[in-house]
Computed example of a mutant assay.
Amino acid sequence: MAVDLNLLVVFQTLMSELNATRAAARLGVSQAAVSASLKRLREAYGDPLFQRTQRGLLPTPRAILLQPRIEEALGIIEGTLDASTSHADGTAKATIVRIGLSDDFEMAFGTRILALAKQKMPHVRIVFRQTNSLMGAQAMNEKDIDLAITSGGFNDGRLKHLSLGHSDYMIVYDRAYRDGDAPFTTGEYVARDHILVSFSGLTGITDDVLAEHGLRRRVRAATTHFSALAFLLRGTDGVATIPSHAAMALRDLGMFGLSPCPLRFPRYAFGVSWRFDTIRNPTVMQVRDLIIEALEPAKIGALSE
């Protein structure tokens, strides 16, 4: 019996979303079209495949058994298309792999990831897309990104996470506006103007740490991007408290100094995440391995030397 391959894509999307409305939006079709495709799938496989519940769609045991086989079939087809794409001169077209990450990781590890990709996977084009631990799971499940580098992991059974290391926080400042390289005292730290880097733009981990000691800081400005600090701190006596890996990247520009924080900040884990079905895409898995190599603890530690 011939099966429309588009029906398999609908099945895969329904298994990912477990919601017909979201599946329709992701596929760019009407909900009625998804319902019609599901009806045809049920007829083809002789099984309801999905049961409606108050929380969305619940896959039947048959659907759960079918999922890996259908994903593998679609992966094989996608692989044949990738293998056949080439330029007129016979050179291979670049395969695009999208990595979601916040710009502190991009600043610290982006160059290393690109260098490894150029050396080991020259026909792969890396696309960095801004995301964070709040939005990364949705972006991966909607296939807007292939991999994610974030702090912590994701509480999502469709995703797999590998922890790669830990980071803490350091103070960054313009060396021209401070005498010497001695660590900041608590008094000097609180007295300085601060640049806040925060998704909300209102508060950050520094405020929580200071509050534990009955202290407050004076925030002169806020930004959502770590990469803006090179311009916002330059030529001022302000400071910023940011993850160590991003602080070291700014230090390497030559004009910024670093100091440990005078108060204890919590350390946090970071790592790489991917969808379970990514294992059937060897190119993405190779890029994942490049990320693991680029972020391995030994090399992270070398940044501070």
Rank of each mutant, 00 (worst) to 15 (best):
K93N: 13
R52L: 05
E106P: 02
K93C: 12
E71N: 13
D144W: 00
T131R: 11
F105D: 03
I126L: 07
T131Q: 09
A115T: 10
K120M: 12
F105L: 04
H123G: 09
I145T: 00
K93V: 07
A108P: 06
M107D: 00
T91A: 11
S86R: 15
K120T: 10
L58F: 13
G136K: 02
A139Q: 03
Q54A: 15
R129V: 07
L147K: 01
F109I: 03
F50C: 05
N141V: 12
T91Q: 15
A108W: 00
A88T: 13
R112C: 01
L65T: 08
I96S: 15
K120V: 09
T80E: 14
E72H: 14
R69D: 11
K118R: 14
T85G: 08
K120R: 14
E71V: 07
T80D: 09
R112A: 06
L58I: 05
A83V: 01
N132Y: 03
K93L: 08
A63G: 06
M107C: 00
A83L: 02
M140R: 01
A88I: 14
F109Y: 12
Q130C: 09
K120L: 13
H123I: 02
T131C: 10
M135Y: 15
I99V: 08
L101I: 09
D146T: 05
E142S: 11
H87A: 10
R52M: 05
L81R: 14
P68S: 04
K143H: 07
R125Q: 15
K118F: 05
G75W: 02
A137Y: 02
T60P: 10
P68F: 00
Q54C: 09
G90V: 03
R125L: 10
L81H: 09
F128Y: 14
D104G: 15
G136F: 01
Q130M: 10
T131N: 09
D104A: 12
N132G: 07
P59E: 06
I70Q: 11
G90H: 10
P61S: 12
A94S: 14
R52N: 08
D89R: 13
L57Q: 07
A108C: 03
L49N: 05
Q51Y: 11
Q67I: 01
R55C: 11
N141F: 01
G100E: 00
Q130P: 11
L74Q: 06
L101F: 08
A148Q: 02
R62E: 13
A83S: 05
G136L: 01
G90E: 07
T60H: 07
R98P: 08
Q51M: 10
L147E: 00
M135D: 12
L58S: 12
S86T: 09
S133W: 08
I126Y: 04
I149F: 03
Q119W: 06
D103A: 02
S84K: 04
A117I: 02
P122D: 14
L134D: 10
G100F: 00
M135V: 13
R52V: 04
F109Q: 03
F109D: 04
K120N: 11
I76K: 15
I64Y: 07
D104Q: 12
I149C: 04
